[in-house]
Amino acid sequence: MRGAQAMSVPSRIRRRDLVALAVTVLWSVVSFLPAWREPELGGVAILGWMMAVLMVLAPVASLIALLGGRR
């Protein structure tokens, strides 16, 4: 029973990690919505900007979760 309980994501993953992972995945999903393909900002489609933000957001969210958890 102990093993079975240990192997379920919600019961084992830390809350901070789950939040950071959810933010990253949610941003990824929203980035690929059709609405962001046509509009442009500075000559680049919003999809491109969303990806650029995600490239910084994902590691920062992970680091906050990891270092916050350690404290």
Binding site: T24, A58, S62, L66
Partner: peptide, 23 residues
Amino acid sequence: QGIPATLALFTGSVVGFSIAAFL
């Protein structure tokens, strides 16, 4: 192929690191 296509590919790697770190 343009900036959006390129960032879609390479941002996948960054998200992959996040998934790797957590899971």
